[in-house]
Design a protein around this nucleic acid. Structure first.
Lengths: 142, 142
DNA sequence: ATAAATAATTTACATCTGTAAACGCAGGAG
DNA sequence: CTCCTGCGTTTACAGATGTAAATTATTTAT
């Protein structure tokens, strides 16, 4: 389906509000976002329009305005964004980058338990070291 | 220092080659990258210039051309890119996003061991659940 | 009904990105 | 010494992004 959805940082702010409220109006989004960022209402309307254009949100007419709702699931969108990032970086360094992220993240006990379980399940089939994939046909240490 | 360095996806490709070779010339970069992507030499030269402009690379004259070297450490740059991404997404979902990434990643046994150790050390001070930080002053479940 | 408020649509515009051709210069081939 | 060739520099240009004013259509209070 719609697997190639690109959400810009500014648009993420809007999406997060809509995902949180599940269903909302432009004025509510504007009111909420103005507590977080210094954007004029017109700016937020532009972002809303672009998100509707790229089919990240639906807009259903309701009287004067629209009701906005997410057309893409939050987790899936985050996973995709993470994939894009980790595709840019060297495979050899994914582990250390994850370490950095985990170090700075707030994780719940359940999150930690899940990750521990996942890691434990991966260890058996894990290589002794990961090869750098920065340069084709050549093993670099980068 | 230079904490606000923005590397675009196209530029990442170039940086990875330079990080791998540690020190190289434009022709070598071009040769290597053409095995990976469909870019004309001129394109790669533009990217090199932009990277030098934003002080991600240094260019030291050597005869006809330049020797290019990274001015920023690879791991630091990756960490920063990861921070940017994870700042966009809801804190409540960082755990599940990490799970997705780890699931698809190739990690070495050492990587896994490090992560396990880190997680174990975090569990004591971890909350029972993470609060959604998408909407200010309001606890949403998003 | 009219005016005031509001929501959406249109238009704007500078900067960033991806992608590259064209141009100019220095050094090696002949 | 002259021409080709590879490298860097300049210029280009469309589409994406951040940011927003202006305009238009619609409502609702008076």
């Amino acid at each position: 389906m719609n697997s190639d959805l690109e959400i810009t940082p500014a648009e993420w702010q809007v999406m997060r509000v809509v995902w949180s409220l599940r269903q909302t109006t432009s004025s509510q989004i504007i009111e909420i976002l103005q507590q977080k960022v210094e954007w004029k209402p017109a700016t937020i309307k532009t972002l809303l329009r672009r998100l509707v254009d790229k089919e990240a949100l639906s807009a259903t007419r309701q009287g004067r305005g629209f009701i906005y709702e997410p057309l893409v699931p939050e987790q899936q969108t985050m996973d995709q964004a993470a994939d894009n990032l980790f595709n840019n970086i060297c495979e050899r360094h994914v582990g250390s980058t994850l370490e950095h992220v985990i170090n700075n993240a707030t994780l719940s006990k359940d999150d930690i338990a899940s990750l521990q379980k996942l890691l434990a399940s991966k260890v058996a089939n894990s290589p002794d070291n990961v090869k750098c994939n920065c340069i084709p046909h050549m093993q670099m240490k980068c």
